[in-house]
Structures are given as structure tokens and as C-alpha cells.
Nucleic acid binder design. Structure first.
Lengths: 210, 210
DNA sequence: AAAATTAATTTCCTATAGTGAACCGACATG
DNA sequence: CATGTCGGTTCACTATAGGAAATTAATTTT
């Protein structure tokens, strides 16, 4: 009866997947905030304009609130989203999260020029995004635009050799084992200079605020 | 026809409340992100598991996505909530940093059990610390204490096979190509289970305090 | 202890989010 | 120009979130 957790769990089991600490317990957190302020469901209902029953169901993970409902919550309770989402009790941690990804079991994201495989994708709230990329492109001309995203990126060549183009600099030839660290809001692009496709591992930082 | 603004406004007036929450146009922002990456609705559908039609309606503020839908969005697009909610960023820097490290040219830090090679060590002010480690240890007994440090760690096996011990969990056997992401304040330790030394690549987050 | 009070849950119904399929331009290609 | 096909919107339908009221659980009152 829990909102979407069952089917997801089923999926996870079906696909032989493991641990995963993921879905941030929004309901739990809401209840925590409510109790901390000694509010009753009725109080919160007054403040947010949501029905008591609805609030109860949200707290018990029986429904997944619509985004407008979430907005009413944060508006009515005078909190902000990160507060509502941040997992309860960040300080006194008595456990740790971990998420294993076996070779080839990442989340695949194919594009014409690259083939990305997102690693550790089952773990939410990460500060880094790791992924493997198969580099198909063979010439710079295949790109219409620079790749560009906030933050920093670390990259190491796992297979083959590549040429890394970056804005403001000369292209670099990277061989297997070579690595590079750069500001990823600087335009960049990769091509394989091997006869076969090259494989690189990247780790990006993720914009914070939480 | 707009997803929630009308009723919310009415409510606010009726209850004499002040508008805390900016009426953040989630749909608009989503479309922005989608176009910035040159994704079609179909692409996003693939990544998130949401229907094309649903995405279209979200973008046009015809529906208010359920929170599980929002989670699928941020999961599938590899972004986080603040990013999805905050309006576009001022951008365009006029330079960028980069630091190349050729194979074996990192800064060496030998210890009895591990041999660390710090990568991109010439670049200061990084948000991530990448390094290669040659794992010499062959049994858990060689450790007197858990390794433990603030933040998060991503690790992938480059050569050989290892066993990863972590607090709170069972040990894991990792083969070449397998990777794992974990909270590094949770105690952890590595041993090689190959006949030769194993090599792993790690990336740690850096505490913003230091 | 029964009755009254208060807070959370559950029920049952309605409103709406989510889906697949059909539908529309806008561009190709023959 | 017919004929694809590609990206997006709309439609008809199903699944589920949200609300009003009944139910349950726990306290307090008399």
C-alpha cells in the first residue's frame, strides 16, 4: 500500500539489485517537523490548506504528494525544500550508505556520439556523479556544441586513446591511464583516436545547496 | 487551466496569508534543461520512465507532477532538486582550469598496506580528490583500524579483484570494472584477492571546511 | 467506568495525474 | 506533391492523489 515503494522494490528484486538507501523519506521527515513543533494534523491542515486525511497519508507514505501539495507544505510550514527533503538526523549517523554497480550494470544513456553508463545511480543525494562513457565520435566536427555543465569534472581513460578538446586550450591526447581534472563549465568534448571505441571514466561534482 | 496557481492564490487571499513561495515555474525550467541538452521529449521519457505525454503536460503546466514523478525526473536527468527548481544560472566564465596527469606521474604516497598515487595534485581548490591505489594488503587482519574520513567516496576497480570491507555491511567482492559509492565516514578497508596486487581508482569529496 | 474530548487513521468518493494511441504541423526525400 | 518521420500536443482512459466524513485510539472528565 505504500506509495510506489512496493513496485520499485519488486523491480529491484526482479533485476537482482541490491541495497540502496534511496527514496528520501518525505513522510517521515514531515512528521518529524510536525512533532518538533508540537503541531497536530489539524494545525498543519490549517496552515497548509491540505486535508487532515491527506497529511496523514503523506506521513505514512500511502500517497506521493503532488508538487503543488509539496509547495503548500513548505509555504504553510515556513520551511524550505532542502529542509523538507534532507534526511532526518544528519549528524548522529549510526549507519552509512553504499551502492554497488557491477560492470555493465549501470544505467545506460546512449547518444549518437557518446554512450554513457551512469554508475551508482540507485543512490540519491550524492555529491558526485560517476559514469563510464564509450566514446564513439571520431572527429570534432561531429559536435554542434561544447558540452558544458556546472562544477568540476575528473576523467581517466580506461580503454583506448582519446583527444580532449577544451575551450581556451589546445586539444590534449590522452592514453590509457592518463587522467585530467577540469572546470566543466568550460566547454569540452571528446573523440576517440583509437581504431576501436575508447572508454573513459568521469566523475562530476553536483551542484549543491543541500 | 494552470496547474495550481489559481486555487493557491484564492486560498492565500482567503486566509490572508503572505506568499512565501515563489511560484516557481517547474515546467518552464524543465523545458529549459531539456532544450539545453538537446533532448527530445522521447529522450527524457527514456531516461525518466515517464510518458512523453506526461512530460509535455508538465512542461506546459497542465499538470502538477507527483513527487515520485519529480524524483524520476531528477534521477533520470542526473540533476538535483535545487537545480530543477532554481531559475537559469548566470553563466559563461571566460576561462577554465585544467590539470593533466599522465600514467604514473601522480604524487606517490606509499604506506605498508596501500600505495596511493594522488592525481591532479597540481590543481588547488578542487572539490574532489582523485587517486589511484595499489592494494597490497591480503587480509583484513593487517588493519588495526577502519579508514574513515568525512564525505563520500567513489571507487572503481582498474586491475585485479578486491574485497571491500565496510562497517555495518557484509564485505563485497569487486572485480575489474565494478564500482561502488559509499559514505566515507563509514569505516572501510580494502584487500586484494588477486594473486597480484590490485589497482583501484578512488575519488573522494572534499570537506568544504578545510 | 461511562461519557466526552482530542488526535490520528480509514473509508468512500471526486478530482486529477499518468499513460498509450491518435493526431498535428514542420521538414525532409522520393 | 505524395509519403515518411520526427518532435510535440491532444484525447480517451486508468490509476491514484486529495477531501469530507466516519471510525478508531488514546486521554481526560465527571
Amino acid at each position: 500500500m505504500s506509495a510506489n515503494t512496493d513496485q520499485e522494490a519488486a523491480l529491484r528484486i526482479a533485476s537482482g539489485r541490491k541495497p540502496f538507501v534511496e527514496p528520501l523519506r518525505l513522510g517521515e521527515r514531515l512528521k518529524e517537523i510536525r512533532l518538533a513543533n508540537q503541531w497536530t494534523l489539524e494545525d498543519v491542515s490549517q496552515r497548509t490548506g491540505l486535508a487532515r486525511s491527506t497529511l496523514s497519508k503523506i506521513e505514512n507514505d500511502q500517497i506521493s504528494p503532488t508538487f503543488t501539495a509539496v509547495q503548500k507544505l513548505i509555504g504553510g510550514l515556513g520551511i524550505d525544500l532542502p529542509q523538507l527533503l534532507s534526511p532526518p538526523k544528519p549528524q548522529s549517523r549510526t549507519f552509512g550508505r553504499r551502492d554497488l554497480t557491477r560492470t555493465g550494470e549501470g544505467q545506460q544513456h546512449p547518444t549518437p556520439t557518446y554512450e554513457h553508463e551512469l554508475l551508482s545511480w540507485q543512490l540519491a543525494q550524492k555529491r558526485m556523479i560517476p559514469f563510464k562513457t564509450i566514446v564513439r565520435a571520431r572527429s570534432f566536427e561531429e559536435f554542434s556544441e561544447w558540452v558544458r555543465h556546472d562544477g568540476e569534472e575528473f576523467l581517466i581513460v580506461l580503454e583506448g586513446t582519446i583527444r580532449l578538446y577544451t575551450e581556451f586550450y589546445e586539444p590534449l591526447e590522452l592514453e590509457r591511464g592518463d587522467s585530467i581534472y577540469f572546470d566543466s563549465d568550460m566547454g569540452h568534448a571528446l573523440v576517440s583516436t583509437s581504431d576501436h571505441d575508447a572508454v573513459v571514466l568521469s566523475v562530476c561534482t553536483r551542484g549543491d545547496a543541500s
